[in-house]
Amino acid sequence: MEIAIFWNRMRIPDNHHIYPVGDHALTVTFGNDMDPQLNQYVLALANELAKEPKWYLDVIPSYSTLSIVYDPVVIRKLKTTSAFEWVRAKVTETIKSSLIKLEVKSRTITIPVCYDPSVAPDIKRLAAEKKISVEKVIELHTRQTYCVYLLGFLPGFAYMGKVDDRIVMPRLDKPRARVPVGSVGIAGNQTGIYPLESPGGWNLIGKTPVKLFDASLPDPVFFRPGDKVKFKSISMEEFETFDQNTMQMVLS
C-alpha cells in the first residue's frame, strides 16, 4: 500500500443546491453524477466542516452530495429562529470562504480477491450474459483503479467505481437473504465488498479474506472515502492461508 499525501487548492463551486432532508438534516448537492471531481468537492466540504467545533451530529459524504444531520434544539439555542436556515447559512459561508486548502490523503490499497466460482456465485452467469470468459471478467475487474466514493449501506461498505462498461450489471431482481462476509460484488457500474454478512442484491464475483470491519478496533472501518483501490486475483489456497496481520501491518 502506498500513501500519497498531497495538498490541492480548490474552490468549491458556487453552483450547488441545498435542500432539507426532513426537519433535522439537510443535503448540499453538486449534481447527481458519479464523478470524481464532484466527489472531491463533497470530501473537501466535509473536511472543512470537521475542522470547526462540532455543532452537528453527522456529516455524511455521498457521490455528489454532502448531508448534515443536526439537532434542531441545539442549533436553535444559538439564537436563531430556524435551525435549517442557520445550517444552510453556515454551509454556504464555508463554501464561499474557500479557496479551501484541501488536504487529500489518498491511499492506494491493494485488496486480494479470490474469483473462484465456489466463492463467486454470479461470476459465470455474468460472464455468460456479457459473452466474455470468466478470465476476462477477472482481468477487467482487476485492471482498474477504483475510487471509494462513499461508505454506506453497512458499517464499512465502500461504494467504488466505475467498473469497465463490459462488466456493468444491474442488481439482482431478488436480493439474496444471506451474502457471506467478504463477498465482492457488482451493481450497475459500482463495485463493493460486503464487510458483514447481510442480505444483498449485488452480483457476487469474488471474495476477499481481508477483514473490512472489526468492532474491536478503535477505528473499526477499513476504508475511507477518497481511497484508491486495486484488486489482485488470488488462488483459493492463498485465500485460505491469508494472514490478516499482514494487511494490518501494511496499513499502520
Binding site: 432532508v21 426532513g22 438534516a25 447527481n32 453524477d33 458519479m34 457521490y63 444531520v69
Partner: peptide, 13 residues
C-alpha cells in the same frame, strides 16, 4: 425515471 445516486436518508424518510 432518472436513477438517484445513493445519498443520505434519516429516521422518518
Amino acid at each position: 425515471k432518472e436513477e438517484l445516486l445513493s445519498t443520505a436518508v434519516t429516521f422518518g424518510t
